[in-house]
Amino acid sequence: MDAAGLVYEGRWSGTDGDPAHNAAGQLVTAAHIATYNSGNVGTALLGTFTTGAPTSAARGALVQPLAELATRHSIDPLQQKVGYVNPVNGATWSGPAVSGHRDWAATACPPGGVPHAQPPAIRADVAALMG
Rank of each mutant, 00 (worst) to 15 (best):
residue 78 L to M: 08
residue 50 T to L: 09
residue 62 L to T: 06
residue 85 V to K: 14
residue 89 N to L: 14
residue 49 F to R: 10
residue 1 M to E: 07
residue 104 W to M: 13
residue 13 S to L: 02
residue 9 E to K: 03
residue 12 W to M: 01
residue 102 R to L: 07
residue 46 L to H: 10
residue 96 P to L: 01
residue 59 R to C: 03
residue 4 A to N: 09
residue 65 P to E: 06
residue 19 P to Y: 03
residue 113 G to A: 00
residue 110 P to D: 08
residue 46 L to T: 10
residue 106 A to V: 05
residue 7 V to R: 01
residue 101 H to K: 09
residue 96 P to F: 06
residue 53 A to S: 12
residue 11 R to G: 04
residue 98 V to Q: 12
residue 73 H to V: 00
residue 5 G to W: 14
residue 6 L to T: 15
residue 75 I to V: 15
residue 74 S to K: 15
residue 120 P to V: 03
residue 130 M to P: 01
residue 74 S to A: 15
residue 129 L to S: 13
residue 2 D to Q: 11
residue 48 T to I: 13
residue 67 A to E: 00
residue 107 T to P: 04
residue 12 W to S: 04
residue 116 H to F: 10
residue 22 N to R: 01
residue 20 A to V: 15
residue 83 G to F: 08
residue 65 P to S: 06
residue 39 G to H: 05
residue 30 A to N: 09
residue 57 A to W: 01
residue 14 G to H: 06
residue 103 D to W: 04
residue 10 G to R: 11
residue 113 G to Q: 08
residue 103 D to Y: 02
residue 123 R to I: 02
residue 15 T to D: 11
residue 66 L to G: 03
residue 78 L to T: 13
residue 63 V to C: 06
residue 70 A to K: 05
residue 38 S to F: 08
residue 92 T to I: 04
residue 59 R to W: 07
residue 3 A to H: 13
residue 78 L to D: 07
residue 108 A to L: 10
residue 49 F to G: 00
residue 94 S to F: 04
residue 29 T to G: 02
residue 36 Y to T: 05
residue 86 N to H: 05
residue 41 V to I: 15
residue 65 P to Q: 00
residue 4 A to P: 00
residue 89 N to E: 04
residue 114 V to T: 14
residue 95 G to Y: 10
residue 95 G to V: 15
residue 42 G to Q: 12
residue 122 I to T: 12
residue 23 A to W: 09
residue 108 A to E: 06
residue 43 T to C: 12
residue 58 A to H: 11
residue 61 A to I: 00
residue 19 P to H: 02
residue 8 Y to S: 15
residue 20 A to R: 11
residue 27 L to R: 14
residue 81 K to V: 03
residue 81 K to Q: 15
residue 103 D to S: 10
residue 35 T to L: 14
residue 40 N to E: 02
residue 38 S to W: 03
residue 65 P to D: 05
residue 8 Y to K: 14
residue 109 C to N: 09
residue 99 S to N: 14
residue 102 R to P: 09
residue 115 P to Y: 09
residue 89 N to G: 11
residue 1 M to I: 11
residue 106 A to M: 11
residue 102 R to F: 14
residue 114 V to E: 05
residue 7 V to K: 01
residue 87 P to C: 10
residue 20 A to P: 01
residue 86 N to G: 04
residue 2 D to H: 08
residue 62 L to R: 00
residue 104 W to Q: 03
residue 25 G to F: 02
residue 92 T to Y: 00
residue 76 D to W: 03
